[in-house]
Amino acid sequence: HITEDTSDLLQHVKFQSSNFENILTWDGKLESAPDTVYSVQYKTYGEGEWLEKEGCQRITRKSCNLTVETSNLTELYYARVTAIDGAGRSATKMTNRFSPLQDTNIKPPDVTCIPKVRSIQMNVHPPYTVIRARNGHQLTLENIFQDLRYHFNLRINHTYQMHFERKQRKFEFFGLTPDTEFHGTVMICIPNLFKESAPYECQVKTLPDRTWT
């Protein structure tokens, strides 16, 4: 009995996760026949049952949002996709063990840069996630990662930049030259899990000094 190799139907089944928004993605055959359909199942590691993801059964797109189904941060998960092409050939592939805590990427923070005459203030907005506590309260990254830090950086000129690391979301760089352009960045860092967001960047100019000298 010769089993046909159908691995070309389905590749790279994996979770793409940012701030706990967990999207299952995969690739099909390069010249994937339009009539290839995909069905998604998921399960919690250590449990027996594979569960069908409603809304991702016999779909033609190559992604499926499993955020709700994988929202328990203390659990570990698997997902798998079954592809069936027009000729009835099928293939099933599974993800690696998915840990929301370890595997989610951190999005850049949302920041407001406020220029003053001799300083620039940077206010990071609360980094909300899609995760809710039992009481329905929306959790921020700070609630989830106790060791979360913000890295504030201000480039003064080509050779000199100021850098501060803090738990608080607000920081002000003082002692700046009025009416001058500066480049600021803010990153989120989670040392324990070696996570670092891409930087939020702002180009901002201090206000002119209108005081009489």
């Binding site: 399960k43 590691y45 250590g46 698997y78 690696n96 063990r97 370890q102 324990n192 899990l193 070696f194």
Partner: peptide
């Protein structure tokens, strides 16, 4: 320790085929 484990995590976990038991 976590850094060391993260380097081998996927390959070690991939060898664990009994995913119904924890």
């Amino acid at each position: 320790i976590r850094s060391g484990f993260s380097e081998i995590r996927d390959s070690v976990q991939a060898k664990d085929e009994i995913i119904d038991i924890r």
